[in-house]
Design a protein around this nucleic acid. Structure first.
Length: 586
RNA sequence: GCGUCCGUAGCUCAGCUGGAUAGAGCAUCUGCCUUCUAAGCAGAGGGUCGCAGGUUCGAGUCCUGCCGGACGCGCCA
């Protein structure tokens, strides 16, 4: 148990005592009681807000409650100082041994240090990327892909049973356009001069290999067929090719999924799941025939009022009711997406997370309405919106036009700057803030670039390990020896600061996982690396602070244990972000 | 017109489900390599947390209204 967890338990035990002796009402709500690290060292190591939070309900002054709590908490051997400060904070200072024990916690648990059991193994479904299978992924997809992947890693680390999904939009008009575009490339592959790609078709060269593959597979036999005959064949092959390309791109980013779920399969499987879902909602009285108002805000010349089949989304917080059928009688995209989420629920998921791009933020309410309706309020859907990425090169925006085929692909960016910098930079920002991504700076490998800063801290630990083995060949520096080192000599302020930060890692994990914010890991790692570099350099002026003390093997061992603890926490944090932890940076 | 998100140092951004004197990086300035990797460190300057109210022991954080920016709003996907 970490020092933090111990003190927290101690506080709640004290609260129970106060409830038992009548100082506090026995039914008082203690959910807002929090123990947090102090920002100012003058306030000790940890501060607790219990007295202020409980004062009102207990009808007592904060300081009265605080004094009573302090009396009980101060008895704990781990606490060397407990005092009431300010409006009623309880400031605690812990014995160095409490922080030193962190080393044993970290090295003892190995890469499991910081794991939580938030979900009690409960199932969580995280859907991310879900890019249309009509072309290569562009940089816009990159952020959502990395974010979703890291979030899934984080939730798994925090004790959830995570399924990572990609929804393939392979049923709409766009994949028919893809098929027609590929068919043109097929004719080209057979020697026909196709000229410019007509407006409305996908112009990119990436379809040329598909055209060639079609020519190889079918010869010229498709040329004599009607579109109705060749389109399904071409479409299937083209979608498969696009998905293969997308999977390759994702693999280059180290992004993976457990399930690739086909929209088309919803209606073409053994049963029509879309019809089933709509039927179920109809049975609940949530489907009706109605007329929608003309939407505002832009030209809707071709708008005609007509009665259509609607889902009563407004009953679940959406702004308007949503259409389920198009005028041609086929289902809308939304109807299929409802069926997809119905399918997720049927597979037992009660916690759903979708990662959207900013351009889909208008879709949030209706999806949450859908899940609420389909699950009868039993399931929750959190939607994380990733804001746009502005791609720059040396401060200048990179011009992109999908129409002209000049958009920058995800693959180009990964190839240019590398996987780790891309991933780290995408996560070194809150998901709902826009992000400037400068290709020139990210490759610079300078202090402009936090990923190298963090990786460097990790590499330095391994460097010092190598140097220690050279400097002290006769001392047992095995991992077993380090793990069991006597760390009571780690009393320097810089050392204690590092140990405290390491002790906060489990708290960070559970906090980040609870609010679905992987970027917190990135910032924590940067902070930890900062403390580490600072302590390292202090050894320049003060040789007695160096990790390697040839005259003092036991001190060396303790410091190496601390360094290893830092490296290990950095490695597990980076693993959650999907970023490598190199042992040297050369 | 409506909805969502954003507005914090010159720039890019953190601020941990409301906590104490608002932080980091970059940029600027001053120092530190005969040394475990200087891809590093120490220090300085830099703020009306968009504006105005409200909620309470306490607001950058929550509520309301404005201002400014981004995105979205039809049977597209």
């Amino acid at each position: 148990m970490t020092a933090l967890a111990h003190i927290e338990a101690c506080i709640f035990a004290a609260l129970d005592t106060l409830k038992a002796n009548g100082t506090l009402p026995s039914d008082i709500d203690t959910r807002n009681v929090d123990l947090e690290p102090t920002r100012d060292a003058a306030h000790g190591d940890l501060a607790c807000n219990a007295a202020m939070v409980l004062a009102k309900a207990a009808r007592r002054k904060p300081r009265e409650i605080a004094d009573a709590l302090v009396g009980l908490i101060a008895a704990d051997p781990m606490v060397v100082k407990a005092e009431v400060a300010g409006p009623g904070f309880i400031n605690l200072t812990l014995a160095p041994s409490a922080w030193q024990a962190t080393v044993g916690e970290v090295l003892g648990a190995g890469l499991g240090y910081g794991r939580a059991d938030l979900g009690a193994g409960g199932k969580v479904n995280v859907e991310y990327v879900s890019a249309n299978p009509t072309g290569p992924m562009h940089v816009g997809h990159c952020r959502g892909a990395v974010f979703g992947d890291a979030l899934a890693n984080l939730l798994a680390f925090a004790g959830h049973d995570v399924t990572r999904e990609y929804y393939i939009n392979d049923a709409g008009g766009q994949v028919d356009v893809l098929a027609r575009s590929a068919f043109l490339r097929y004719r080209e592959a057979l020697g026909e001069a196709i000229g410019d790609i007509p407006e409305g078709l996908y112009p990119g060269d990436y379809l040329k290999p598909v055209g060639q593959a079609l020519a190889d597979a079918f010869g010229n036999s498709l040329l004599g067929e009607d579109e109705a005959q060749w389109l399904p064949k071409v479409r299937g092959i083209a979608i498969d090719a696009m998905m293969a390309m997308i999977r390759d791109d994702l693999a280059a980013l180290n992004v993976r999924h457990d399930v690739f779920f086909s929209e088309r399969a919803l209606t073409q499987g053994a049963k029509d799941e879309v019809a089933e879902t709509v039927g179920e909602l109809r049975a609940k009285g949530l489907v009706f025939e109605g007329v929608l108002e003309k939407p505002k805000g832009h030209d809707a010349d071709d708008w005609e009022e007509r009665e259509q089949t609607l889902f009563r989304a407004t009953a679940f917080g959406d702004d308007v009711d949503r259409a389920l059928l198009k005028s041609d009688g086929t289902y809308t995209y939304f109807a299929a997406d409802m069926a997809y989420h119905h399918n997720k629920l049927a597979r037992g998921f009660r916690h759903l997370i979708n990662v959207f791009g900013a351009d889909h933020s208008g879709y949030i309410k209706r999806m949450q309405a859908a899940v609420a309706a389909l699950s009868g309020g039993e399931a929750d859907l959190d939607i994380k919106v990733c804001q746009l990425v502005r791609l720059l090169r040396a401060g200048e925006p990179v011009k992109m036009s999908k129409r002209a085929g000049t958009f920058v692909t995800l693959r180009e960016v990964v190839d240019e700057v590398g996987r780790d910098p891309v991933r780290f930079m995408m996560l070194y920002r809150k998901n709902d803030a826009t992000l400037d991504f400068d290709l020139a700076k990210v490759v610079e490998q300078s202090k402009d670039n936090p990923v190298f800063y963090v990786q460097y801290a990790h590499a330095r630990v391994h460097s010092v390990m190598r140097a220690a083995r050279d400097a002290m060949p006769h001392v047992d520096l095995s991992s077993a020896a380090i793990r069991t080192a006597d760390v009571s000599c780690l009393t320097d302020a810089g050392e204690l600061e590092l140990l405290k930060r390491l002790a906060l890692f489990p708290r960070l994990i559970s906090g980040a996982a609870r609010v679905h914010e992987p970027h917190r890991i990135a910032f924590y790692l940067h902070d930890l690396a900062q403390l580490f570099h600072g302590h390292w350099t202090r050894g320049n002026d003060s040789p007695h602070l160096r990790f390697i003390r040839p005259d003092e093997p036991s001190v060396t061992l303790a410091r190496l244990a601390m360094a290893q603890s830092c490296a290990q926490v950095i490695a597990s944090g980076l693993a959650i972000l999907g970023v490598g932890a190199p042992e040297e940076m050369r």
